[in-house]
Amino acid sequence: MAQQEPSAIERFINGILPENPVYRQLLGMCPVLAVTNAMKPAMTMAAATAFVLICANIMISLIRGLLKPHLRILIFTLTIATFVTIADKVLAAYMYQMSKQLGPYVPLIIVNCLIISRCEICSSKQGVGVAIADAIGMSLGFALALASIATVREVLGFGTWFGLRILPEAWPNWGIMALPPGAFLTLGILLGIAEWVSSMKKQKA
């Protein structure tokens, strides 16, 4: 092998900021925009995605020696769809209101490119330990991205954070932030800021 595969710790750290799935790789944009009008649904979504990502990564890593190249994607899809169904049923059983609010976006985790790309890039090549570290790192990075957007949108849109009021009652709620355009504008501007910060760092270095 010409190139050294990254170690567990590198994988873990990469996932959080340097290769952040949302800000750096632009993966999984659909939930990032759809469920971030408040912190609660955003964090539930992040947890569900993390569950599926970690389980799928472990499973694929365990059977990586048996994978045939042409059946690879089929097996990835089967694994992801199964874990998503489990996550969806558990949400419906224990957090019914939240599951109703998230609606179709829980099953849409199946086509979240983040998970299939981690299966392809990491867990189908490396051991279980590395795969777990990678999945946790990526999930944290994804949760961080969701949290940053949801914070902006919930604070400006409702004056609250996790349902707790933090801006004075006099704050005029920016209704647009809770609506679809607010999602696009917030993510666009945050992407710009992330890009600007990393270019400043490069200049200094």
């Binding site: 059977i63 048996l66 994978l67 045939k68 059946l71 089929l74 097996i75 089967l78 694994t79 199964t82 169904t85 489990i86 049923k89 558990v90 419906a92 059983a93």
Partner: peptide, 23 residues
């Protein structure tokens, strides 16, 4: 060629059935 797919399908099917019965 496909024994792994069949095996996984049975395994996942069992898992889903258990989830369905439990929840």
């Amino acid at each position: 060629q496909a024994w792994l797919v069949i095996f996984l399908a049975v395994l996942y099917g069992g898992g889903l059935a258990a989830v369905q019965i439990a929840l």
